[in-house]
């Protein structure tokens, strides 16, 4: 169980950059491939990922990004076709890699033959927008907090906190375990963090990696 992943993000735009930032916060290794030199410099300055400047559909660039040893690649540019091409190339070079492509339509099914997962960020954005428009009743948690991360985390087998009572585990300041296993009850000090069960946890971004270490190993 290696919990630290080596991830390539193709596209350093809004979606790509934010994704890289989140992955970096959680302690993963990220390499961003960005075509535009100016944009690449800007991403470099944020110091969340190694940046390779070039076209991600160029196999040579993908190799420079370390595709052979990567655990996952995400095509997150604004062009669905390019994303798909990047993922398929990566799969060809490194068959074990997990591929995620950003697409621009709701019709996911037709793509999943070629990539492991697709995502349609505009749909999530639209959901948020709809929540905002309709008002308080159907807001998701993410919209009422500032910078907190509300995550559902599955405790991994063999993680430091696995099998321990909440009262025995010293989570870093800025962490709150919210729910009991599988989200039916509010967590209590005697709640046990069982491997394989999921818990809702609120964390401040700067301690997210420590919480991940404790719960995921």
């Amino acid at each position: 169980m290696v919990s630290k992943l080596d991830v390539i993000v193709a596209g350093g735009g809004r979606v790509g950059f934010e994704t890289a930032t989140i992955l970096d916060d959680r302690g993963h290794d990220v390499t961003v491939v960005e075509r535009d030199q100016e944009r690449a410099d800007a991403v470099s300055d944020q110091y969340v990922a190694t940046v390779v400047t070039g076209d991600a559909s160029n196999p040579e660039i993908l190799e420079q990004a370390g595709v052979e040893d990567a655990d996952a690649i995400a095509g997150l540019t604004g062009q669905a076709g390019l994303n798909l091409a990047v993922c398929m190339e990566a799969k060809e070079i490194a068959p074990g890699i997990r591929t995620v492509a950003r697409i621009d339509t709701r019709a996911k099914e037709s793509y999943t033959r070629f990539v492991d997962t697709v995502l349609f960020p505009e749909l999530a954005g639209a959901r948020n927008a709809a929540n905002e428009i309709i008002g308080s009743d159907v807001e998701t948690l993410a919209d009422v907090t500032g910078t907190l991360d509300i995550m559902q985390i599955r405790v991994a087998e063999g993680a430091p906190a696995a099998g321990r009572k909440l009262s025995e585990v010293r989570f870093p300041a800025g962490t709150l375990v919210v729910s009991d296993d599988d989200g039916n009850r509010i967590a209590r000090p005697e709640t046990t963090l069982d491997a394989g069960k999921r818990y809702v946890v609120a964390v401040e971004p700067d301690v997210a990696d420590e919480v991940m270490n404790l719960m995921r190993g």
Binding site: T21, I22, N128, I150
Partner: peptide, 19 residues
């Protein structure tokens, strides 16, 4: 940082402004 437009499978998350 704009509103988070990426959706991840296991968690909800809001935008973070700085590295």
């Amino acid at each position: 940082a704009g509103p988070t437009d990426g959706e991840s499978r296991t968690e909800a998350r809001v935008s973070q402004r700085d590295r």
